[in-house]
Design a binder for these strands. Structure first.
Length: 211
DNA sequence: AAGGTCAACATGAGGT
DNA sequence: ACCTCATGTTGACCTT
């Protein structure tokens, strides 16, 4: 879908290339593109072109040109963003940057979006690594439980703190959080059932009842 | 040429 | 009704 402005407001930007500025009519977009890519105007010319363009295309179809913020403009915007993620006095910053308030507004909106995207990506990465380590830990513990269950006979080594009697190895498990051996015989069945269940990360974040 | 970046825009939700 | 913001999209420009 083509994005065309609902009105011919001042939002449209055209760039006047030095040497071609005298031309009263807009060049076709293809020829403008070549000029833009190969001949970057001076910073002053950029700013001037950002501010000046209030006139409209004579043929009624204003080509949407892309504005590139100068390094100084970006630096100032970033600095302002660091101080506050929301824009309070819109006009003053715009004036300082020689941009329109709307441009500064849009920049902040986009900047917030980028910031959020970055954070989401980092969180996703973190959760992936966490899931991997939990999976590995789960595998280890399952193996350990299998081994313990295999040793059905043999001298009991754990004494129940409640009954003060030896516990059978088959009832033993390891708390994934504190990595201490606990007995399912000492706990309600619901808690014991969590060992073999696939525990989602959000649940395993909570401290185990055994601790 | 393909893919990435980013300014600009559209739209809908929520607050006043 | 208006404003602000989040989110998704578009298109110009840039990089590889």
């Amino acid at each position: 879908m083509a994005v065309l402005p609902s009105s011919s407001s001042s939002l449209e930007l055209t760039i006047s290339v030095p040497g071609f500025a005298s031309s009263p009519t807009l060049l076709p977009s293809s020829s403008v593109k070549e000029l833009d890519i190969n001949q970057v105007p001076l910073e002053e010319d950029w700013m001037a072109s950002n501010m000046e363009d209030e006139e409209e295309s004579s043929n009624g179809e204003p080509p949407r040109k892309k504005l590139r913020l100068t390094k100084e403009q970006s630096r100032l915007l970033e600095e302002s963003f660091r101080q506050n993620h929301t824009l309070n006095p819109k006009e003053s910053l715009a004036m300082q940057l020689k941009l329109r308030p709307r441009q500064v507004e849009v920049w902040f909106q986009n900047r917030r979006a980028r910031s959020k995207l970055k954070q989401t990506e980092m969180e996703c990465e973190y959760l992936k690594r966490w899931f991997g380590s939990l999976t590995e830990q789960n595998r280890r513990l399952q193996r350990e439980v299998e081994e313990l269950r295999a040793i059905k006979v043999g001298p009991p080594t754990v004494i129940s703190p409640h009954s003060c009697e030896p516990l059978p190895a088959s009832t033993l498990s390891m708390c994934p959080r504190c990595e201490r051996v606990t007995s399912t015989a000492d706990k309600p069945p619901s808690a014991a059932a969590t060992l073999s269940a696939k525990v989602p990360p959000t649940q395993s974040r909570q401290p185990s009842a055994a601790c």
